[in-house]
Nucleic acid binder design. Structure first.
Lengths: 150, 150
DNA sequence: TTTCAATTTGTAATGATTACAAACACAAGC
DNA sequence: GCTTGTGTTTGTAATCATTACAAATTGAAA
């Protein structure tokens, strides 16, 4: 685990969010999981730590975190929202073969939020769609379906 | 109507798509509707022209168009996919108050497709989230809910 | 201990999307 | 003209993420 409880507690307190056990655990999971997990994946992973954890709590908590700017909701895959524990703007790559979402380090002059044409900008999203290197090497066939294993 | 039937017929033929009456009508609607309509909105608008038009046809046809590069599917709003009749890469602004999606003319060096880190890039998506000028002028309250009027 | 508000949970809707098979259209060949 | 066959369209029935809602729980303050 990269992030320890006291650090997480500080993050929550710094954003005016009461640090409950569920919230600490969920925030730690999202920040440590760098695969942009879905609610379903998070729930599957977290029920081991919190057997009674409900999906409703995950939905409401992640909505709260996103509103506070602690995490970012990615709507790249229309089937399911994915969550990114790194709220700083950065780009993504969505592979249409394996459905993974990868971080892309690329400079972008539009990443600085602010205002455009009078519209107030709160979030900047940039991503690419295509076939990732691994799937290309695999002749276009998916190398994995990380979140599709029901 | 901006696009006439013969022009639409050429577009479809040029992409190897058989120009049926439904496809011509649907393509014309998406290209003329610059509000990034949802399936629901398109269906509501098109049943006047094709009373028997089914939502299934809309789903399959727009999926076909998107695969052929004729239109672009926007997954900005997690509730519903929206369709853009302008397939050339350009930016969008999503207002979280009125839920509209506006076109944004802005230069972007990353809009040129190609390849990054070995990943083949087929589509480039860039958008901003925030509160649009109209809603800001209206004190943050939505100025309209174009697609929410059930 | 009591109280009260916030949080968490489980269950029941909601509604977009998909699966699927029947109905239909239309061109090629007879 | 008719027949055949393939591709298209349609309607209905699932699927499943998300939301709505109210009861249960927690925890701090009085």
């Amino acid at each position: 685990m990269i992030t320890n409880t006291s650090a997480l507690r500080d993050v929550l307190a710094g954003h005016g969010v009461k640090p409950t056990f569920q919230r600490l655990t969920i925030l730690g999971a999202v920040m440590d999981n760098r695969s942009h997990p879905t609610i379903r994946a998070l729930h599957a992973a977290l029920v081991r730590k919190i057997p009674t954890l409900s999906k409703t709590t995950l939905y409401s908590t992640l909505e709260l975190f996103a509103a506070k700017g602690l995490v970012r909701a990615l709507t790249i895959d229309p089937a399911e929202v994915r969550y990114d524990g790194v709220p700083a703007p950065h780009h993504h790559f969505h592979c249409t073969a394996c459905r993974r979402i990868l971080d892309i380090e690329i400079s972008c002059t539009n990443s600085r939020a602010g205002e455009i044409h009078g519209h107030r900008i709160d979030e900047v999203h940039g991503y690419f769609k295509g076939v990732c290197r691994d799937c290309r090497a695999n002749d276009g066939r998916s190398v994995a379906s990380p979140d599709r294993n029901k």
